[in-house]
């Protein structure tokens, strides 16, 4: 007489848990928690036509040796539309907002650091310019 075998419907979860625990331990050790990002700058490569830049206004941010900033907006003909001198670094955001409010279609900026300008301060200014939606940011070498 055949014995009826009981079917066991229970799933053994112990190997699954063991595997998940190993995966978690490995991923915790290998995950990079510091996120690198980038601030992009554009360098001119001589392909832009002069007719496109006829009415283009550019914001020039110049670092002084003391660390203060001079902000000036000029068009392609050299005419100044906005000028703010000796701005503290912590007031850069306010000055940038003022420049953007007073000049229309301001979408490009050129940062002119001093030789002694700290790299960190350059990044701060670029970050503030990006925050004000200035897309084209260039850095002028010495």
């Amino acid at each position: 007489m055949k014995r009826k075998e009981k079917l066991d419907f229970e799933i053994n979860l112990l190997p699954v848990i063991s595997m998940l625990a190993v995966c978690i331990a490995f991923l915790l050790l290998s995950t990079v928690w510091i996120h690198l990002a980038s601030l992009d700058i554009t360098q001119a490569h001589g392909t832009e036509s002069s007719s496109e830049e006829q009415n283009k206004k550019t914001l020039f941010i110049t670092f002084e040796e003391s660390g203060r900033l001079n902000l000036e907006v000029k068009d392609s003909q050299g005419k100044s539309h906005f000028n703010r001198r000796a701005t503290q670094l912590n007031q850069a955001e306010a000055s940038l907002k003022e420049a953007l409010a007073s000049v229309e279609q301001l979408n490009s900026a050129i940062v002119r650091p001093h030789a002694s300008t700290a790299y960190e301060n350059l990044i701060i200014v670029m970050d503030q310019a990006r925050k004000q939606a200035i897309q084209e940011i260039g850095v002028a070498p010495l």
Binding site: H35, A37, H45
Partner: peptide, 9 residues
């Protein structure tokens, strides 16, 4: 022509 400054977000 494309230069990126690496920063920490």
């Amino acid at each position: 022509h494309r230069v990126r400054f690496a920063v920490i977000k």
